[in-house]
Amino acid sequence: MGLVDRLLSGDRRAAAQLVTLMEDGGPPAREAVAALYPHTGHAHIVGVTGSPGTGKSTLVYELAKEFRSRDKTVGIVAVDPTSPFSGGALLGDRIRMQKLSTDEGIFIRSMASRGQLGGLARATGDAIKVLDAFGRDIVMVETVGAGQSEVEIARAAHTVIVVDAPGLGDDIQAIKAGLFEIADIFVVNKADREGADRTLLTLRMMLDMGEGSRERGWRPPLVKTVALQGEGSALVADAVEQHLAHLKESGQLHIRSMRLAEEELRRILGQELLSRLLDEIREEQWEFLTKEVAERELDPYTAADNLLASFFQATAGVDERRGYES
């Protein structure tokens, strides 16, 4: 039996091996995606993001426990950064979640970002598909500790939780742009600490001024938690469920799904086009144009136009054939 068939029959090892396959990429990964894609689209994908140290992992752990008590199965993809120097990574999100790892209704996978910017790994989207096809009701994605512009998660999740905590610079310094705008739910974690109420108030004021909320008819709720003690996680789970209900009732779920599909298609198209283009270009031409640009004989836009022109010329005949073949 192939890996995808084993996945669909509920084999946990197959799920794990498929995620590795997706991380390694290349033709085997693409074939696997093609095989499992028809079985996806059922999971509620929930992103959890926020600055490092706000308590994302602990919150994800508490939320997973809460969803399990509501008879939901849960998949977790936790992304941590790859060292740009060694290419290695120390993946520690699991430390806070290990107590759940023997629960058959939970599947936790750590992923290294492998040089990808934006808070996710290149293969995170495909890992989500694996867990979706595996039949998880909810797939939670914990991003790399994010700053102000790591908003990739908005392109991968139905519901985005932005976690903040008191005492991180001036109130909402860390989430003032970008992150603020992608939140469907705000969590102020470590709410037992001094300054929590001020953080909450600042967020509320920004919402009152009409900031945030990427869709109509939904004002992102603010939830106070002390994740380490499990306080407030039921309220966050409620908010997640309410957001999904809202998406369904308002027709936004369909629109959001269309947007996620479009974003993904655009991203893959860009990658494919670039890698095929680089395959087609002759090395001499590449070197020649690079030199021209470096020596100010040619501007980079014109050089890129030249490369594109010769790529389309070279592939004009080939493309037609390819279209019929596949």
Binding site: T20, L90, R94, I95, Q98, S101
Partner: peptide, 28 residues
């Protein structure tokens, strides 16, 4: 091992055999 270019999953202290094996399986 991270500095040698590997991806290292650290599980923390006081792990039972069941927890270790479950983690190893999920992390492949």
């Amino acid at each position: 091992l991270r500095d040698a270019g590997m991806e290292v999953i650290y599980t923390g202290l006081r792990q039972t055999a069941e927890m270790i094996v479950a983690a190893a399986l999920q992390e492949d």
